[in-house]
C-alpha cells in the first residue's frame, strides 16, 4: 500500500473523533463511506498533529519506541487486514514535533504536522457521521494497552515494579510534574519557533563553540550525531577535544539537538 497522503488535511474530511488522554483524536477519511469504524477494514487516518494512517499501519511498534515524549499507545482493531492493533497518538498535545516516529515507520504511515500549520489550509466541509451503536459496543471493548518497554532492551526491574505497585495503591500528592512538563514544552516551543526545520534543513555544529558535552548525542532520535576526537590541544583530556559531528544522511532536521545544546553551537542550515 502506498504511504500516507501528505495532504490529508485538505483533501480528507473529518468523519469522527476518538477519546484521547487529554483531547479527542480527530479521524479523517476520504469520504464518509471509507470509514467503517473500529472492527472493520476501513479506518482512515487518525490524529491531526500526529496523523497515523491506520489502513497502512502494520503495528511493528517502532514509533512507540522512538517517541521521546511517549505519545503513542496501542489500540486494538480487530478484523483489519494489515494488523489487529494500531499505534494511536493518544497524547497528541505532548508531541514535540521531532519527527522521530515519521522517520522510523517502515511503511510511512505517520505524518507529523506542525500544530502552527493546522487550521490554515484545512477543508471546512465536515462530515460528522453519527457513530453506529454497534460500533460503539466494539469501541467500548477496545482497551488502550500501554507498552513502554522496548523490544531489544531487557533489564531486571522486579523490585522497582514492586515499589511502583505499592505506590499506585494510594493517591499521593504530586511534587510539580506539571510545572516541569510545561516548562519543557515552552522551551521546546520557543526552539521550534526560532529555528527553521524540516527535511530541507540540516543541523550544523560550530566547532568553535562546541564544548563536547554530548547532550545532543543523547537527544538525537536517529543516532545521527557522533563525537569525533579532534586532539586540539595536548593538555586537554581526550574528552575536551571531542566535537559533535552531524551525519547528513540520517539527520531529519528536527531541531532537537539545537534544543538540547547548552552553548547554542548547533544551527539549522538549508541543504544545498
Amino acid at each position: 500500500m502506498a504511504e500516507i497522503d501528505k495532504n490529508f488535511m485538505t483533501t480528507y474530511a473529518k468523519v469522527a473523533t476518538h477519546d484521547g488522554d487529554d483531547e479527542p483524536i480527530q479521524i479523517w477519511a476520504k469520504d464518509a463511506d471509507s470509514y467503517g469504524g473500529v472492527g472493520t477494514d476501513k479506518l482512515g487516518i487518525w490524529g491531526s498533529v500526529v496523523g497515523v494512517d491506520f489502513d497502512i499501519c502494520v503495528a511493528d511498534g517502532a514509533c512507540v519506541d522512538a517517541c521521546p515524549v511517549d505519545v503513542f499507545d496501542w489500540i486494538d482493531t480487530p478484523n483489519h487486514p494489515a494488523s489487529d492493533k494500531k499505534a494511536i497518538g493518544a497524547r497528541e498535545p505532548d508531541c514535540i514535533v521531532c519527527r522521530a516516529c515519521e522517520e522510523v515507520c517502515p511503511v510511512d504511515a505517520i505524518l507529523i504536522t506542525d500544530p502552527a500549520d493546522i487550521g490554515s489550509g484545512t477543508t471546512d466541509t465536515v462530515i460528522e457521521k453519527e457513530e453506529k451503536p454497534a460500533e460503539a459496543v466494539v469501541e467500548n471493548q477496545t482497551k488502550v494497552v500501554s507498552e513502554a518497554t522496548s523490544l531489544f532492551f531487557k533489564k531486571p526491574n522486579k523490585w522497582l515494579t514492586t515499589a511502583k505497585n505499592v505506590l499506585a495503591k494510594e493517591e499521593l500528592p504530586t511534587t510539580g510534574i506539571e510545572k516541569a512538563k510545561s516548562m519543557f514544552k515552552n522551551l521546546r516551543k520557543m526552539t521550534l519557533d526560532a529555528l527553521p526545520r524540516g527535511k530541507n534543513y540540516i543541523a550544523l555544529v560550530d566547532n568553535e563553540k562546541c564544548i563536547g558535552c554530548t547532550q545532543c548525542v543523547y537527544f538525537c532520535n536517529f543516532a545521527s550525531i557522533d563525537m569525533i576526537s579532534w586532539d586540539l590541544k595536548a593538555r586537554t583530556s581526550q574528552f575536551e577535544s571531542k566535537k559533535a559531528l552531524i551525519l547528513d544522511d540520517t539527520c531529519t532536521g528536527c531541531t532537537l539537538c539545537a534544543f538540547a545544546c547548552p552553548v547554542e553551537a548547533i544551527t539549522m542550515e538549508a541543504r544545498v
Binding site: P68, T149, K155, N157, I177, A180, K181, F184, Y218, F219
Partner: peptide, 17 residues
C-alpha cells in the same frame, strides 16, 4: 525529581523505567 523525569524521557537513556 520531576524535572529529571522529563529530562530522561527526552534523552532516551532510561527507557521509561
Amino acid at each position: 525529581v520531576d524535572f529529571m523525569d522529563v529530562e530522561v524521557k527526552f534523552t532516551h537513556l532510561n527507557k521509561g523505567d
